[in-house]
Nucleic acid binder design. Structure first.
Lengths: 193, 193, 193, 193
DNA sequence: TATGAATGAGGATTCATTCAT
DNA sequence: AATGAATGAATCCTCATTCAT
C-alpha cells in the first residue's frame, strides 16, 4: 500500500534537488539540467512534473519553508505562556538546522528575484503573514494591540535582517549571536513605557 | 583643461546606466546590451571600459553606495552631539532619495549574488565596515565599549532588515515607518540596564 | 454482438481528434498530447493504435477525405445525366459542410508536408486519382477522349486552386463564388471549338 | 566603395540560405542551425540579423517572390498589347527558372502555415494583390469591368492551383502543360458571351 | 487495454565575450 | 576610441517515442 504516488515522490525529489541547487548555485545558476542531475533523473522529466522553472523553484522554497514552519510549530507546542511562545518562534527561526550559510544563501537568492516575480512575491507574502500571525498570537497577551502590532513587525524585520546578514557575511553571525540581538530587541520592545 | 578623462566619463556613464538597469531588471536581467542602450552607446564599448560584466556591476554598486555615503556624511557634518550623529546616520540611510523601491530592488538583487561572488562580497563588507565605524563613532560616547559594539551591530542589521523588507514587500514600509522602528530599537538599546 | 472492435473505435476517435487538431493548430502544432486531450484519452494510448504520428495524421486525412467522397457519391447517385454528374462532383467538392476555413486550413497544412512525406504523397495521389476518375466518368460522354482528359485535369486543378485560395485568404471566397468560377471554367471547356 | 553594407550582405545570404532550406526541408524542418550551416556561418549570427525565425522566413519568401516579380516585370516590359501583357504575366509565372519542384515545395510549405501566422498571411495577401493588379492592367482593356475582375480572379486562382499541383504531384505537370491549361482557361474567359 | 513515467534529441532564443575594422 | 560582427555555450522548453506497470 503505497503512501505516496510516483508523482508525489518525484515532485518531492525534484524540489529538494532544486533547493540544494539553489543553495550551491543561486537562482540564476540553478538550471534544469543541474536540478535533474542532482535528482539523478533525466533532464526531460523535470518539466514533466513542473510546468516551468519558476514553479519548480516556488515548490522548492515552499517545501523548504514548510520545514522551518514545522520546527517552529514543534517548539510552539511545548510553550505554555505567551512569552514562551514568543521565544519559541524566535528560537525556531534560528534553529541550527536551518540557520546555516547554504540555506540563508538560497533564501537570499530567492529574495533577489521577488521584486520581479509575482509568484515568488506571493509566496514571500504568505511566509511573512504566517510569521506575523504567529508573533501576534503571543504578543497580544504581552502588549496593547497597537504596540503588539509594532513589535511583531519589528521582530520579523529583525529576523529577516539577521538572516540577510548571515547570508551576506561569511562567519559574521551565529545562532547565539542572533538570539542575543533578538533578546535585546524584545526586551526593549516589551519594557518600553 | 578637462577635469575628467574620456575613460572616467565613460565609466561613470556606464556604471550609472548599469545601476538603472539593475533597478529595472535585476541582476540576471541586466544584460550588456541593455546597459549599452541605457547609456546610449554601442554594445561593444561596455567591455572596453570594464573587464567583464561583474566589474561593471561592482562599479555600479560602488558608485551608488557612494551617493548614499555622501548623504550620510552631509548629515553628519550638521550633527553636533553623539546622539545627533547617531540620528544623522540612521536618517541618512532612509533618505527619501534612496529609500525607494527601485533602489532597494537593485540592492536586493545584488545581495542575491554576494554569496557566490567574492568581488561583490568584498564590496559588501566594505559597506558594512563603513556603516559600523560610523555608528561606533557616535555610540562609543553613549555606551560602554562592549555595549556599543553590540548596539552598532544591532542597528546596522535592523537597517538592512528594513531595506530588505522594503524591497520585498510592495508598499509595506516607508521612511516614517522605518524611522519609527529604528527609534524603538535605539531607545531600547540606549536605555537597557 | 459488437459491430466495432475496441481497436476500430479507438482508431476512429483518435483520427477524428487528430483531424480536429489539424484544423486548429496545423500539422506542426498537432502534437500527440493535444490529440490525446481532444480524444479524452491518455497520451500513451495514441501510439498504441498508431505506429507513429505520421500514421495517425494519414488516418485522419484519409477518414476526412472519405467523408467528402461520401458526399460526392451521394450527389452522384441523384444525377442522371453526364452533365448532372459533372455538376454533382463539382458541387460536392464545395459542399458547405466541407468548404469551410477550418477544413481547408487542415488540408492546406497537410499539403505542406506532402512533398517530403511519401506516405502523405501516396494518399494525395489516391485522392487525385479518384477525383480524376469521377470526372472522367462524366466528361467522356461530353467530350472526345483527349479533350475529356484535359478538361478533367483542368477542373480538378481549379478545384484545388479554389480550396487553396479559401485556405489562404480569410473571407476571400465562398461556395457561391467558387461555383461561379467553376461554371465559367466548365462552360469554356465544354464549348471550346 | 562598397555597394552593400555587411548587414545587407548577411541578410541576403541568410534569407537565401533559408529559402534553400525551405526547399529541401520544408518550413518545420527549416531550423536555424540548418540555415546557418547552409549560409556557412555560426548559429548565433542568424538571430543577430533577424529578430526571430519567422522574420527570417518572411524575408526569404519576400526575396524569392521579388525574383519572380522581376521576371514578370521583365516580360511585361516587352509586351505591347493588352493580350501580350496578359500572356507575359502568365508565362512569367511559369518561367522555367521558378516553376520547379523545389520552389513549388518551398512555397507550398510556406502556405501551410499562412492560416496561423498573420505575418505570413500579410505577405501572401500582398503577393495576391500585386498579381491581381497586374492582371487587371491587362484585362480591363479586354473585358468589361465586372468580367475583368472575375477573369483576373479566375486566372490567379488557376495559377495557384497549378503551382499547388506541381508541388503536390511528382512529375505531374510541367511548364508546357501548365500553359496549355492557362490558355484553355483564358480563351474561355475572353470568348464567353 | 491503458496509463503516464521516462528519455533524450532538438527547438528557438539569449548572452557574455572576442575580434576585426 | 568606438563599433558591431561573429561566435558558441548555455538557457528553457517541447516533443515523439519507448517502456514498465
Amino acid at each position: 500500500m503505497p503512501r505516496l504516488s510516483i508523482e508525489q515522490i518525484r515532485r518531492k525529489e525534484l524540489s529538494e534537488a532544486a533547493y540544494e541547487a539553489l543553495q550551491v548555485w543561486g537562482l540564476p545558476g540553478t538550471t534544469l539540467v543541474r536540478v535533474a542531475a542532482k535528482a539523478g533523473v533525466s533532464k526531460g522529466i523535470v518539466l514533466h512534473y513542473f510546468r516551468n522553472k519558476d514553479e519548480l523553484i516556488e515548490a522548492a522554497m515552499r517545501r523548504a519553508n514548510a520545514a522551518l514552519r514545522d520546527e517552529v510549530v514543534r517548539r510552539l507546542n511545548q510553550a505554555h505562556s505567551p512569552r514562551a511562545r514568543l521565544d519559541a518562534i524566535i528560537e525556531g527561526n534560528f534553529d541550527e538546522q536551518f540557520f546555516v550559510p547554504q540555506i540563508t544563501h538560497a533564501w537570499l537568492s530567492f529574495c533577489g528575484e521577488v521584486p520581479r516575480n509575482p509568484q515568488f512575491a506571493r509566496l514571500q507574502r504568505a511566509i511573512h503573514a504566517r510569521m506575523h500571525s504567529n508573533l501576534m498570537s503571543a504578543l497580544r497577551h504581552l502588549l496593547p494591540a497597537a504596540k503588539a502590532e509594532e513589535a511583531a513587525r519589528a521582530i520579523s524585520i529583525m529576523i529577516d535582517g539577521l538572516w540577510l546578514r548571515h547570508g551576506l557575511v561569511q562567519g559574521g553571525i551565529d545562532r547565539a549571536g542572533a538570539l542575543k540581538h533578538m533578546k535585546a530587541l524584545v526586551d526593549g520592545l516589551l519594557t518600553a513605557r
